[in-house]
Every structure is written in structure tokens, then in C-alpha cells.
Design a protein around this nucleic acid. Structure first.
Length: 186
DNA sequence: CTGTTGATCTGCT
DNA sequence: GCAGATCAACAGT
């Protein structure tokens, strides 16, 4: 098992979003290990992306998107949900991040069921669901995902380009021409 | 300060 | 398919 190096995130946000598919997101809470394969992501960029939180510039909430790549950007939305991104961009952009939208549970499934109080098919099939299952909150804001701490991403299998489904991003009304939602499921 | 909107999920109809 | 939960950012008063 190999942790993705910082250089992995130092590339075009859209490329990183595609390359994250098939990788494993690992959460460690004390001795407990919870993990899942990343099966859906979305890319959010900067001035060229009207739908991105960073589009209108830096705020207290989104400042992580302007910070070091490979770190977590966690935000609170709709009054009750957290969503998790990893900061990723190349040198041409001041901000950018990849939203984790869905995982396929691997380890710690019993723990997720306890957190979520629901059945296995509903554990991590949505951005706010997976943060709840992995117990990710603003405490993980800025967490370094390139270090074997409590939250990180490891290499797994290589995904063929032909396996990736491309769509318009979900739940947004702006910039719907950008096909920046990537997934391994139909 | 007030009102509106939102990268959502759940439970009910 | 739709309402409700109810926080952070922003535009307007």
C-alpha cells in the first residue's frame, strides 16, 4: 500500500479527479480503520469555473482551496451536511479541488452502519453520506492526505479511460457545459 | 440586520 | 416528487 504523493495533486484538477477513481480513501480513528474505493468524483476549479466555491475569490470558508495541494477541504452545507474535497491544481491555477461523491465500502463496514444507521447500499453513495460514514467534519479541515495520519489516500488499481463515465456535475445550475463528474458506475 | 440560495439527505406522499 | 432540517456566504436595506 502506497500513499499518493503530493505531486499527484499538483496537476490539472480535472485530470486528478479522473485519476482518483479506483484509489482508496482511508480513515483511521484510534485503532479502527475505515476505507472505501473512490468511485465518483467531481472537479471544481477557479476563475474558469463559475460553479466552484473558489470562483468568487478566497473566503474564510474556502481558503483551503487556495492552500497546499493534497490537503482536505471540508465544508458544511444545507445546515446539516459536510462534504469533503482534496485540494488539487496545477501551477496555472490559484485554487481548485476534487469532491469525493461516492465510495465503495471496503473496511470498517460495521462501523459505518453504526454511524449511518442504514443499510449497506446507502452507506457512502453520496458526498454527505460518505463524510458521515467516515466521521469527517470540520476537524479534518486542512488535514494532510499525503501522510499516514487519520485520513489519507492510497494507490490501488489502475483504471482504464474506457471505464470512466463522464457527466455534467450533479446538483449545480452553473457551468453545466463542463463534464467534470467522473464515475465508475452507470 | 434580513432574506435568499445552496457541490444534500431523509422521510413521507 | 416534495418538504423539512437549518449553516455560511452574499446582496440588499
Amino acid at each position: 500500500m502506497k500513499i499518493l504523493p503530493r505531486s499527484f495533486y499538483d496537476r490539472n484538477t480535472v485530470d486528478v479527479a479522473q485519476d482518483l477513481l479506483g484509489k482508496i480513501l482511508v480513515r483511521r480513528i484510534g485503532q479502527k480503520v475505515i476505507s472505501g474505493m473512490i468511485i465518483e468524483t467531481e472537479a471544481y476549479r477557479y476563475k474558469d469555473d463559475e460553479a466552484s466555491h473558489s470562483f468568487a475569490g478566497m473566503t474564510e470558508r474556502n481558503k483551503a482551496m487556495f492552500g497546499e495541494v493534497g490537503r482536505a477541504y471540508v465544508y458544511f452545507t444545507y445546515g446539516m451536511h459536510y462534504c469533503m474535497n482534496v485540494v488539487a491544481r496545477n501551477v496555472n491555477f490559484k485554487a481548485g479541488a476534487v469532491l469525493f461523491r461516492a465510495l465503495e465500502p471496503i473496511e470498517g463496514i460495521d462501523y459505518m452502519i453504526k454511524q449511518r444507521k442504514t443499510t449497506i447500499s446507502n452507506l457512502t453513495n453520496g458526498p454527505a453520506k460518505l463524510t458521515q460514514a467516515l466521521q469527517i467534519t470540520k476537524k479534518q479541515y486542512g488535514e494532510d492526505l499525503t501522510k499516514p495520519s487519520s485520513l489519507f489516500v492510497i494507490e490501488d488499481r489502475k483504471i482504464k479511460k474506457t471505464e470512466i463515465k463522464t457527466r455534467s456535475r450533479i446538483g449545480i445550475k452553473k457551468a453545466t457545459d463542463k463534464l467534470w463528474n467522473f464515475s465508475l458506475i452507470d
